[in-house]
Design a binder for these strands. Sequence first.
DNA 1: ATTTTATTGACATTGAGGTGACAAAACGCA
DNA 2: TGCGTTTTGTCACCTCAATGTCAATAAAAT
Lengths: 215, 215
Amino acid sequence: MNSILLVEDDELLGHGLSLYLNSKGYTCCWVTNATDTNEYWFHADLVILDRQLQDGDSLRHLPGWLMQKALPVIILTAKVDIENRVEGLMLGAKDYMTKPFAQEELLARIIAHLRPLGASLLEYKSLQIDVSSRTVKCAGERVNLKPKEFDLLLLLLQNPGRVFHRDELLNKIWGYRSFPSTRTVDNHILHLRQAFPCLEVETHRGIGYRLTAAK
Amino acid sequence: MNSILLVEDDELLGHGLSLYLNSKGYTCCWVTNATDTNEYWFHADLVILDRQLQDGDSLRHLPGWLMQKALPVIILTAKVDIENRVEGLMLGAKDYMTKPFAQEELLARIIAHLRPLGASLLEYKSLQIDVSSRTVKCAGERVNLKPKEFDLLLLLLQNPGRVFHRDELLNKIWGYRSFPSTRTVDNHILHLRQAFPCLEVETHRGIGYRLTAAK
DNA sequence: ATTTTATTGACATTGAGGTGACAAAACGCA
DNA sequence: TGCGTTTTGTCACCTCAATGTCAATAAAAT
């Protein structure tokens, strides 16, 4: 469960937001000044930072805080002019919202910033395929696939249930434009089947292969 | 040299923005439809996506595109209502801007999203990398790296686990736009491997390299 | 000019993956 | 059911392109 540090000296807004965020399942820590911010910064996964605090413009502290621990920061402010937004973003913030704003939008932005970018994770039964690292885990165990094998697995997983012509596979993965009789596709299908017992690849005689849609 | 994919079917805005981004030092690729987006997605570091294209709502394609390669996406739209913003963010976008907007703010947001959330101190096993002073310590011992070697190490460490195409490395670190056959990348990888026995760089034959995510 | 850094080219090494032989299975047809 | 044909499964081998490696050269920095 992610924890959010809310820095807001407006009692009403601070109270409302912290309740709201709590209700959405976040651990929300609400502070009202720079000193407390400093203290709680380390425990947060994301920071919502009001720009005007009683003890001054919170932006002054931002670079220092970020240097201690890098976090996604969403700045809240009443100021609407462009220069201020640009300044906030340039000082290290990830996002900038102008009051008044809708709770729902803030929440959506929080989710967007907390969501890991590399989450291109495909799942099929006990398989996990990470596209960006080109790695496959089967029941938690890393399995090494050769490049073409990985490409083939990826294509099948991205279209579960669909029948692929051998020719289509040769074209999409091997880049072939003519289709000689070859055992190449079979070979790679074979390797995948051997590597992953849980992988249900149906043979469609005279056509090609398809991956049984997992649920 | 970061490259930005601009998906915008308004001629005027598309042209203006691509010029602007180019003038700010980005390699900007401007396309106007979903098909071309699909093709260029892989080469981009960040995507600016207009929501309404001639061939429909671009949000339909977003999850599919993100699955191929995870990228920060900024959505542009004329729609102002909250539901639309939330929808876009929930589908995987990192940011959402409503037209009309100021170029400067878009630029600031681009910078914010491309800026690695990295603290100035990166760690990997027994390595400590100080980004600001460009120094590396291995098990407490200062190790001198050549500039390009440091850049390469930094890029890998900022994206642990991710596979980098050789072309991508040549582009990001060497600024190449064409990709001649060269032993340059291999050489620098070699030097890093020799300098740091603890550095686990996987070779992905025919693709590139990746740093094993340490934990 | 001297030192440091980067790139190139030659050569060794490796491993991905294709090839073809053969076995096994599926299919068609009587 | 049985036989012949076609398609697929399986395996071992072999090729070649991609990479590892190093020394020599070029380029850049000082």
